[in-house]
Design a protein around this nucleic acid. Structure first.
Length: 621
DNA sequence: TAGACCT
């Protein structure tokens, strides 16, 4: 019996090893298998023993390579279309749930039901929700679109023809209706348009780019993919900046593509490449990857991008920031990926600095810009506090916070607290100190092994170590439910990173608290932080306002000012030109405009009389 | 700058 996610993971990992030892196929393949690492990557865990791949025979290998992921009818007609899976004898209630005859297992291994391990460890928190999304909170969110001929948004999934299989998965995910980013982004993507979308993670953006991709692959009449020796040819590529985020996207994409015949594979570093190669050889339609491992696979010619029809960059502004940009350019521009215009490109992030938008436009063709407001508002969901704390006082100050929190916590349990620090060494050091002082903590950063990173995340999510000390590796995209408190022990240098960090709490309609330790070392952040807090109706300490005023003549904080007037980049840089006056959509206090935005079709529709004024609050507000 | 990103 499953007691927790962590248990089920370790149990099934053990089962898999056992199964591999006892359930061998041909003796030859068993004896020739390389000794397997005890490390089972997350995307391969929780498989029933029967699904554990034994090394394919050379014949199988050839077959799987050639057919790639397609067992279906010949590509002369739409392979899936709206084909209703055969459901002999299935009742109306669960609609063929668990049915294996729906065209799925012809010559293939069973597809693991990605829904059966849902709701991991939720009981520990006494929560009921499954999706983590409070849809009622999504009603009144400002949305902006710009670009030529923006397709109108939809209000229900039923309005979009995503196909039966995908609709069934939407139902299984308990998605009742599309979130704002989905309402707008899905029609845009289904319309074949490139997209740059500003939307907070947790607002349903993974589904927003996955649904059109899966639907497109199902309906597409793609020519037979080339038969390279051991090269695979994915139709879609989804890139993200961290391994954990790629795993998370992969997990979600597996749910969305369940029983659609669309195969999703993830590739990332720090895990044995052989297992990933085997997964790829079994066929891949959608490849989710981190850049480094993908470059490796491309250079080994194990993956070719020449059939890519869909490219999605998650946390796109990070992906195009200095450290990543060369790798991304290599992947997108210097390998064999079809050029923009020949593929469909979707960029998503919660923040989109103007200069990054400019870089990103290299990858896009006549794109639509979409900015979606955050669920609720920062004011409602995240209380931001800034405290002046000298470097030498930070630890004891953190201790005070944690003590107070424990005292106030329910059942005397420590609420989940995510502590961001600047360096990997600093993370280890703080973790050690916390543990020594009676606070169960763990840490996640790039110097830890992948196993350690994943273990840390599990241990944090389950509440075993309710304090997680992290570098920015955990700042973006990770959906960790129940984080009550984000502490910026060391503030980042970039206000956008601050935005992403505090976005780890207050998720899914829940309240969150974000506390920052500020001192003279952070002076360059003072102005943007102060402005951000003001825009979010947070109380700005007078001392911080003084810091902000002082730094204002010093160039405005350099990089921190890059987002210009729209604090979170919720504005299309193409609209920046000679000053634009007029009213803006987000301010104005009326709110009457809030939900119908972007409903227009024509160029520049949705801009009303004047587009965004400066000082407009953003998509994130 | 350190942080992320193949070995």
């Amino acid at each position: 019996m499953r007691t927790s996610w962590a248990d089920s993971v370790s149990n099934s990992a053990a089962e898999n090893v056992t199964a591999a030892a006892t359930n061998n196929g041909p003796a030859s393949s068993a004896s020739s298998r390389p000794s397997r690492s005890s490390y089972v990557p997350p995307h391969l865990r929780n498989r029933p023993p029967s699904a554990e791949p034994l090394a394919p025979t050379p014949k199988e290998n050839l077959a799987s390579t050639n057919r790639s992921a397609y067992p279906g009818p010949p590509p002369s007609q739409p392979r899936w279309g709206s084909r209703e899976p055969a459901r002999p004898g299935s009742g109306p209630s669960r609609g063929g749930w668990g049915n294996r005859t729906g065209g799925w297992d012809r010559g293939r291994e069973r597809e693991v039901n990605p829904f059966e391990n849902d709701e991991p460890a939720e009981e520990a928190f006494g929560e009921q929700e499954n999706t983590g999304i409070n849809f009622d909170a999504y009603e009144d969110i400002p949305v902006e679109t710009s670009g030529d001929n923006v397709p109108p948004p939809v209000n229900t999934f039923a309005e979009i023809d995503l196909g039966d299989a995908l609709n069934e998965n939407i139902r299984r995910c308990k998605y009742v209706k599309p979130t704002p980013v989905q309402r707008h982004a899905i029609p845009i993507s289904l319309g074949g348009r490139d997209l740059m979308a500003c939307a907070q993670t947790g607002s349903g953006k993974t589904a927003a780019f996955c649904f059109p991709i899966i639907s497109g692959i199902m309906k597409g009449q793609y020519a037979q993919r080339p038969r390279g020796a051991r090269t695979v040819y994915p139709l879609a590529l989804i890139l993200s900046p961290t391994r954990e985020l790629s795993c998370q996207i992969h997990d979600e994409a597996k749910k969305f593509s369940y029983q659609t015949g669309v195969r999703v594979v993830v590739a990332y570093g720090g895990a044995p490449i052989n297992q990933q190669l085997r997964e790829l050889e079994r066929g891949v339609d959608i490849l989710v990857a981190t850049p480094g491992r993908l470059v490796d696979l491309l250079e080994r010619a194990r993956v070719s991008l020449q059939m890519v029809k869909y490219l999605a960059l998650d946390e796109a502004d990070r992906m195009l920031d200095m450290g990543f940009e060369p790798q991304i350019r290599k992947i997108v521009e210097q390998m064999d990926m079809p050029p923009r215009g020949m593929r469909q490109t979707m960029l998503f992030s919660a923040t989109f600095p103007k200069e990054i938008q400019r870089l990103a436009s290299d990858f896009l063709s006549n794109y639509i810009f979409l900015a979606v407001g955050r669920v609720g508002s920062s004011t409602d969901l995240i209380v931001q506090r800034v405290e002046y704390v000298l470097e030498s006082d930070k630890r004891s100050h953190l201790m005070d916070l944690l003590h107070a929190q424990r005292a106030n916590g329910t059942h005397g349990k420590q609420a989940l607290t995510l502590v961001f620090v600047e360096t990997k060494k600093g993370a280890d050091s703080l973790e050690h100190w916390l543990c020594m002082n009676g606070f169960p903590a763990t840490t996640i950063h790039g110097d830890r092994s992948q196993q350690e990173r994943e273990q840390a995340l599990r241990s944090f999510k389950s509440g075993t170590t309710p304090i997680l000390v992290a570098t920015d590796v955990a700042a973006r995209g990770l959906d960790i439910p129940h984080v009550a408190h984000v502490v910026n022990f060391d503030l980042p240098n970039d206000i956008d990173d601050y935005v992403h960090r505090i976005g780890r709490t207050g998720r899914a309609g829940k309240m969150g608290l974000a506390t920052a330790f500020f001192n003279d070392n952070n002076a360059s952040l003072a102005r943007s932080l102060s402005e951000l807090m003001q825009e979010a109706n947070q109380e700005v300490p007078s001392w911080l306002a003084r810091y902000a005023a002082r730094s204002s003549y010093g160039g405005g904080g350099g990089r921190n000012r890059r987002t210009g007037g729209g604090r979170f980049g919720g504005r299309d840089f193409r609209r920046d030109g000679p000053s634009r006056g007029g009213s803006d959509y987000y301010g104005g206090g009326g709110g009457g405009n809030s939900s119908g935005m972007g409903g227009g079709y024509g160029p520049s529709s949705g801009y009303g009389g004047g587009g965004y004024g400066s000082g407009v609050t953003s998509a994130w507000d």
